[in-house]
């Protein structure tokens, strides 16, 4: 259980890091928290030629919130994000989701940007990034581009990031007034990857649900929205619509089984999660 040999570089500036990525391409692997990467190295599932350690780079963005958005830099640990999100009602979805990311010792070191870059389909970060309409900021020697989360995740460990690009921030636009969020996942043990999970958001205006976001994860090759289920919830909040949405979600999405969990089990869990999370969300909503 020791990694295969690799070269190691700890650049002091972003330009140096990007030059290393440009030079080494697919052979280079960025390390920040390393909480997913180092196990893969130990198991020799990953055998990069060179590790580019970005922890020593001066001047990278940290965690920054203004009225418009929350910006999370590449070395911001899950634990720091959780502390911040826990203090702000409008980031209740992030707080609820990050609490389920592995365990305290892992959250102290693992990063949001790393989870986004890895794009594990059962992980929380890609799901809440999608639900909150986050943007992924990618930097390379040729400049910077911003990719919305809905276009970033392409499959199991597959993203829109090119080998010479580094995620230099993930930005979350602050939700408009009226949005409320719910989160739940089902895992065999606390901190394990989810068998299935749900990030749900709905916007209430004058007692009516005007917008809905349902993002399921752990059920396909990437986090997925369920548009039909979302539409069925618009209007007066009511229990029948919740049942309808719960039935629709499992039916409209292409669900894939993983390991011991069949597609049928995951569909059933999607139904359960939808009912639980949405029932809680609409309790206390006007009209109920």
């Amino acid at each position: 259980m020791k990694p295969a040999p690799f070269a190691y570089a700890a650049p002091r500036s972003l330009d140096e890091a990007l030059a290393l990525l440009a030079e080494h391409g697919d052979e280079a692997q960025i390390i920040a928290g390393g909480q997913s990467l180092v196990p893969m190295l130990a198991l020799r599932m990953a055998t990069p030629g060179i590790l580019v350690d970005i922890n020593r780079i001066a001047g990278l963005p940290g965690l920054l919130e203004d009225d418009a958005a929350l910006t999370v830099g590449p070395c911001v640990r899950h634990a720091e994000l959780l502390r911040h999100a826990g203090r702000h009602r409008h980031w209740s979805l992030i707080a609820a989701a990050v609490r389920e990311v592995a365990h305290p010792g892992i959250r102290n070191r693992g990063t949001l940007c790393g989870s986004i870059a890895l794009a594990d389909p059962a992980a929380e970060a890609p799901a809440y990034a999608l639900a909150l309409d986050a943007e992924i900021v990618l930097s390379s020697l040729s400049g910077e581009r911003r990719v919305p989360a809905r276009k970033f995740f392409r499959g199991v460990y597959e993203t829109a990031r090119a080998p010479d690009e580094m995620i230099t921030a993930v930005t979350f636009p602050r939700p408009a007034p009226g949005w409320r969020f719910g989160f739940q996942e089902i895992a065999r043990r606390h901190g394990d990857y989810a068998i299935a999970g749900l990030c749900a958001g709905l916007r209430l205006e004058a007692g009516r649900i005007t917008e809905v976001e349902l993002v399921y994860f752990g059920i396909a090759d990437r986090p997925m929205r369920a548009p039909q289920a979302e539409r069925s919830l618009l209007g007066e909040p009511n229990a029948d619509a919740v049942k309808e949405a719960a039935a629709a979600a499992g039916a409209e999405l292409e669900v894939e089984g993983t390991g011991e969990s069949s597609a049928a089990l995951k569909r059933q869990l999607m139904r359960v999660l939808t009912e639980r999370v949405l029932t809680k969300l609409i309790v206390g909503a006007p009209g109920q």
């Binding site: 390390i31 909480q35 010792g105």
Partner: peptide, 10 residues
Amino acid sequence: VRGCLMLAVQ
């Protein structure tokens, strides 16, 4: 932190 998930160089 996990001592096995951090490199000594880090």
